[in-house]
């Protein structure tokens, strides 16, 4: 049984690699190590404001997203609805994980906090603020330099993991990072994204002028509405700055919830699953 299965998997593996290589060799997957597509050239030549004004001229500069960071401007402007619904998938995945742990809370035990040695703890105490500062800088400069909401959220999500491993789960809870607060901040992020996406529509209904969902700068056909590209002389790229900030909140606190839950002691989970939530709900 096992021998036949191994041979079958090896043959299937070889066949898949061969078919993929055949497709690549025939040019079916596009050019490897070659130029880029016309769509990529369009994004490259319209996203940065300096190039857009040169290439498109002032009459069509609304096609630009006013961000020198082309990847972020695709994520949040050109293909913004794509990202919006990916955020919905992210939301559902985290809700699914939270639902598995429904009704399970760790009772407050006066156990001595376990953790690693004092040297590691001291170093970690210095590293965590640096981690948070770097994540915030990645999020808030995401429209100018490589970075953005997703990158910053992933970078900040490392901090609770390190704290849980080096100190303990209780250390994080005692500092006020609880599941409810994390859920609240994540919801603030998601609601913020929805608001920034829908503000053009709300404005359109109120004023009677035309505006698109997720509109950043004015577009041909919807010329009146546009988010401010500059704020106090600094380039903030319209809605991109706000979306980066809110996505940063949503991603980082979403993963914080997951790690707060997965680090609950297994005995507690089992006793809560068997006996029901009586003593588990006390927090």
């Amino acid at each position: 049984m096992s021998g036949v299965r191994k041979v079958a998997s090896a043959v299937a593996l070889l066949a898949i690699v061969a078919v993929l290589s055949l497709g690549a060799a025939a040019g079916g997957m596009g050019p490897f190590f070659d130029g880029i597509r016309a769509l990529g050239t369009f994004y490259l030549s319209t996203a940065p404001p300096q190039i857009a004004e040169l290439v498109l001229g002032p009459s069509y500069r609304g096609l630009s997203s006013y961000s020198p960071e082309v990847v972020t401007s695709i994520v949040w402007d050109y293909r913004g609805l794509d990202t919006y619904f990916e955020t919905a998938v992210f939301f559902l995945a985290i809700i699914g994980a939270v639902a598995i742990y429904r009704g399970i809370e760790e009772p407050v035990l006066r156990r001595p906090a376990s953790g690693l040695s004092p040297i590691v703890r001291a170093v970690t105490k210095f590293l965590i603020p640096i981690n948070i500062a770097v994540a915030a800088s990645i999020a808030l400069h995401g429209h100018l330099t490589p970075g953005g909401g997703f990158q910053a959220g992933a970078a900040l999500a490392v901090a609770p993991v390190i704290v849980i491993v080096v100190f303990s789960r209780r250390y994080l809870l005692e500092r006020g990072v609880t599941k409810l607060k994390a859920l609240f901040l994540r919801s603030v992020g998601l609601i913020g994204i929805a608001l920034v996406v829908l503000i053009p529509v709300i404005w359109s209904v109120l004023s009677g002028e035309w505006a698109w969902v997720m509109q950043n700068q004015w577009k041909p056909g919807a010329e009146v509405f546009s988010y401010p590209a500059y704020l106090g002389g600094a380039l903030i790229s319209g809605s991109i700055w706000f979306l980066n900030l809110f996505e940063f909140l949503a991603v980082s606190f979403g993963f914080t919830i997951l790690f707060l839950l997965i680090s609950i002691d297994e005995d507690t989970v089992r006793s809560c699953m068997i006996r029901g939530g009586e003593e588990c709900d006390r927090y």
């Binding site: 960071e69 972020t72 997951l258 790690f259």
Partner: peptide, 23 residues
């Protein structure tokens, strides 16, 4: 792709191994 590096390093060197080690 510096953007991908920024998101990929914390995710696959930090978070995946941590979650899998918990599991």
């Amino acid at each position: 792709a510096p953007d991908i590096v920024l998101v990929y390093v914390p995710v696959t060197v930090g978070i995946y191994p941590a979650a899998l080690l918990f599991l």
